[in-house]
Nucleic acid binder design. Sequence first.
DNA 1: AAACAGCGTTGCGTAATAAGAAACAGTCTA
DNA 2: TAGACTGTTTCTTATTACGCAACGCTGTTT
Lengths: 254, 254
Amino acid sequence: MDRENMVKSVSRALDIITLVSMKKEGLGVTEIANQMDINKSSVYRILTTMAHYGYIEQDAESGRYRLGYTFLDIGSKLLDSLDIRTEAKPYLLELGKFTDEVIHLVVYDQGEVVYIEKFEGTETLRMHSKVGKRAPMHCTGVGKAILAYLPSAITEDILNRKGLPVHTQYTITDREKFLSELEAVKQRGYALDLQENEVGITCIAVPIFDHAGNAVAALSVSAPTIRMKDERIEELKQHVLKTGSNISYRLGYR
Amino acid sequence: MDRENMVKSVSRALDIITLVSMKKEGLGVTEIANQMDINKSSVYRILTTMAHYGYIEQDAESGRYRLGYTFLDIGSKLLDSLDIRTEAKPYLLELGKFTDEVIHLVVYDQGEVVYIEKFEGTETLRMHSKVGKRAPMHCTGVGKAILAYLPSAITEDILNRKGLPVHTQYTITDREKFLSELEAVKQRGYALDLQENEVGITCIAVPIFDHAGNAVAALSVSAPTIRMKDERIEELKQHVLKTGSNISYRLGYR
DNA sequence: AAACAGCGTTGCGTAATAAGAAACAGTCTA
DNA sequence: TAGACTGTTTCTTATTACGCAACGCTGTTT
């Protein structure tokens, strides 16, 4: 970006914030001035300006400057405005173009997953029939990805209520086997759907976490099993994982 | 505070942030310039400067400017640095498990309380939506717990500035009544919120003192009023008081 | 289609403004 | 008590950020 068009004092102010944010005990005016190689008084004036707005606080005893609570105010406003669908969209598009396969985005709702976005390889994004539809969790990649990260009490409850109904001959129907599958998912960080929901379809799915660290959503790349050999899965999983963590980050997950 | 010593462009930048934070859809350069009654190009340059640091983001399609994710980064660093938070954490967890109700931890800041931690039942929430939010002091348990122990001059000042706005039909709006309520809180050592902030919610709150003996924070257990009969309050208050004094001790209060 | 109105962005000259040097007023140390 | 630190303030200078106006662009209106 053009460094020409930047406002110097604002730029300095933001540099100071970065500096201050790194020392939790706070920093002194002189200390900051030395580190940034600018004059004390400049630092002082910028600090008092930011302190006036509550972005910076001065410790009454030590005189040192620390981060102020206004960052929490703004941060919580930002969190309120985050929407999974809009945040995820560009990442899904990118993943779709790269893989040239179908990408799904789902959210968790009452023991099921709800499809809220779909992207088809070459075609443009549009309202597809599957958007809004619900699916069980135990036989889908996205469902297992979320299930693996839910609190175990909730997972138990869902399994008790929904059971493990057969969808294909590959569906995991044994409770013990399913629980250890979830453990494996958690270990790997991603879930596979090996024709467990629909014969001939294989998926790679990853969970998406919100700002509170809850697995609120998941995304998957689905493809005909014929195209999903081990080497392809190995390659794709990297990108799916990366995309998932990018979206989680956009939702405030740190 | 001296408006003389402030850096104008930094001040403008922070005003812009405030403005932007109020519209979650974002704002345009011209829109901001009109509202602040300054030139477009000034706004533009300040925005690009902040965008370079990630405090502001420009929507690729609409061209509008929104809050950027750096606020979340700084916000989470700020939360980490709050030692009250780290010291209190284990005690809050214990209280949360024992009561199986919602536990809140707030700090006092400029006549209001700021939520810095929340425990729900058994789970730990990294950054719940309420964390960072502000609330008035006069109609919350935590607010009254702190208010009762602040120097009376400061209490007076807060009441003058903020008044006693109605939140529910149970909110104490008479100044004399409120002051004697604070006296009662001080006598008992804990505060009750009997649906004064939100109908159907009852809280028990206690102040937390720092090493200098200042009431800098408070914690509360909140529950539906139906679950908060007199006997339960009697039982809970003991544990809340104990937890509060334990945390104060950890902060150096003797 | 053409004219218009709106946007975000850019270049430029000028005057306001932020930066720097140095003195000031404290505090803590030796 | 002298010294070496702070954070704060003052004052002068030229740097710099400002406002003006024009630009390219998009979408709408006529």
